[in-house]
Simulated assay, not measured.
Amino acid sequence: MKKLVSIMLAGVLFAGIADAQIYRWVDEHGNVHFGDCPPPECPAVEVPVRPGPSKEELERAQERLERLREEQRRAEEIRRQEAEAARLRKEEEQRIAAYRKSRCILARQNLHVLEVRRPVYYIDERGERVYLDDKTRTAEMERLRAEIVEFCD
């Protein structure tokens, strides 16, 4: 795509050169030269040059160039948006993985504490210790096992 844009731009820029006279001549060493001003000591032959593009052709080329540039800008914007979306997805996946890992570790630690069969308590809103009874301990152990299954690989 960039190559096409470059070729079209070069064609537009150098269109004016085509109006100049081009000559061909051979020097005393037999080397062939081309130029717009032959040396006086060498016989030169005028080289026929095709006429440059018309004004309409130049305008069409410019319009094509602008369309190509706009397509390129859109494609770059799409690539930028896709890269940003991929970056956000990766960040979200990392955040979820960290959350799952912390939940897994916490569930395993708490289950271990409950399985040791020592008295376990928590502090309520009044600041008092509340000990877990056997029924609550068993229910909490089942809940923690379910969390381990859900969050641990």
Rank of each mutant, 00 (worst) to 15 (best):
V45M: 11
V45Q: 05
E46W: 00
E46R: 15
E46S: 11
E46G: 04
V47P: 04
V47C: 00
V47K: 01
V47R: 04
P48C: 08
P48L: 08
V49D: 03
V49S: 06
V49H: 01
R50I: 06
R50C: 00
R50D: 00
P51M: 07
P51V: 02
G52P: 03
G52C: 00
G52T: 05
P53D: 10
S54E: 09
S54Y: 07
S54Q: 07
K55I: 10
K55V: 13
E56F: 03
E56W: 03
E57A: 13
E57Q: 10
E57F: 07
L58F: 02
L58H: 02
L58A: 02
E59K: 12
E59Y: 05
R60A: 10
R60M: 11
R60I: 12
R60H: 12
R60K: 12
A61L: 08
A61V: 13
Q62S: 02
E63C: 11
E63F: 12
E63H: 12
E63S: 12
R64I: 15
R64L: 14
L65D: 02
L65C: 08
L65E: 12
L65W: 02
E66H: 00
E66M: 08
E66G: 07
R67S: 14
R67E: 07
R67C: 03
R67K: 08
R67G: 12
L68D: 11
L68K: 13
L68N: 08
R69N: 15
E70I: 10
E71N: 09
E71M: 09
E71R: 10
E71H: 11
E71Q: 09
E71S: 04
Q72I: 07
Q72F: 04
Q72E: 09
Q72Y: 07
R73C: 01
R74T: 13
R74D: 13
A75N: 06
A75T: 13
E76N: 05
E76C: 08
E76F: 07
E76K: 15
E77Q: 09
E77A: 13
E77D: 15
E77N: 04
I78K: 07
I78G: 14
I78D: 12
R79W: 01
R79S: 09
Q81N: 13
Q81K: 15
Q81D: 15
Q81A: 12
E82N: 12
E82H: 14
A83C: 05
E84Q: 13
E84M: 08
A85N: 11
A85S: 03
A86T: 02
A86C: 06
R87V: 07
R87E: 10
R87I: 11
R87W: 06
R87H: 07
L88G: 03
L88C: 00
L88M: 03
L88I: 00
L88E: 15
R89G: 11
R89E: 09
R89L: 13
R89H: 06
K90D: 13
K90S: 15
K90E: 14
K90W: 03
K90I: 03
E91H: 08
E91F: 02
E91S: 11
E91I: 01
E91N: 00
E92M: 03
E92Y: 08
E93M: 08
E93H: 13
